[in-house]
């Protein structure tokens, strides 16, 4: 039986912002019969033509700079059943490690042709894929010389409230893993679950390297949509 305790603790003092922002009392365990059955569902029609392609959805006068990649994977429940029609929202830094956020002060260039936002819906088998630019490493103020490993943020709306997940996808072999308190907050055996795998099978010749990132959401109940 694998260790199912995968989530970071609420309080992880090495990540300083958790100190004043984490609950101090035990959470109330909600029994299954008091939970809700569904989460909102979004139709295909809500997606824009290039929502799944971050290399195209913010072009102004050319292509964004950096290494084009494909990210693909499957969203499933804990029994491995694919979850269809799950909304995945995406955001990330550009190739230089710069976020398009007004409060961002990192001295690295913005890319006029890259916003770093996208979204996809999973297909009937729970699969998704999108194109983007590989994000750069990013310095932050948590401690002296603090750098975030390259990562892509995911917000996932599963079928139940307990399947509402926000996470980050990392890239294999990043030397910053050992120094990043956010990555390190994850229990040791579960850290591998946050790291995408390079996939030659999905790599597109003359176009883009591919990374696989499957996501498993809490629970194993049937959904009203199956």
């Amino acid at each position: 039986m694998p260790d199912l305790d995968v989530h970071p603790p609420h309080l992880y003092p090495a990540y300083k912002s958790t100190i004043l922002r984490s609950p101090t009392r035990p959470l109330l365990l909600v029994p299954e019969h008091l939970r809700d059955v569904s989460m909102p569902v979004f139709g295909e029609s809500v997606l824009g033509e290039f929502d799944h392609d971050l290399t195209k959805n913010a072009r102004v006068n050319g292509e964004p700079i950096g290494e084009r990649i494909k990210v693909t994977g499957r969203v499933m429940d804990q029994q491995g059943r694919g979850l269809a029609n799950v909304l995945i929202e995406i955001w990330q830094a550009n190739a230089a490690g710069r976020y398009v956020h007004k409060a961002e002060i990192h001295d690295a260039p913005l890319d006029p042709n890259f916003l770093g936002s996208g979204r996809v819906l999973t297909d009937a088998e729970g699969r998704y894929s999108f194109y983007t630019i590989k994000p750069g490493a990013y310095p932050w103020g948590n401690h002296y010389n603090a750098w975030r490993p390259n990562h892509i943020h995911f917000s996932v709306l599963g079928h139940h409230l307990e399947q509402r997940l926000v996470t980050q996808m990392y890239f294999p072999g990043d030397p910053l893993f050992a120094f990043d308190p956010i990555f390190q907050s994850t229990p040791v055996p579960a850290r591998e679950l946050l790291i995408a795998q390079f996939s030659m099978d999905h790599t597109e010749a003359e176009f883009a390297l591919a990374y696989m990132f499957d996501m498993v959401l809490n629970g194993h109940r049937k959904t009203p949509f199956q």
Binding site: P2, Q79, H101, L115, S117, H153, V166, T167, A190, L193
Partner: peptide
Amino acid sequence: MAHLLRETPSQTVGPFFAYSL
């Protein structure tokens, strides 16, 4: 019950979610 897959761990939403979410 069959073996359950491990969930994908949660990570923080961070400070720069706004231009997407």
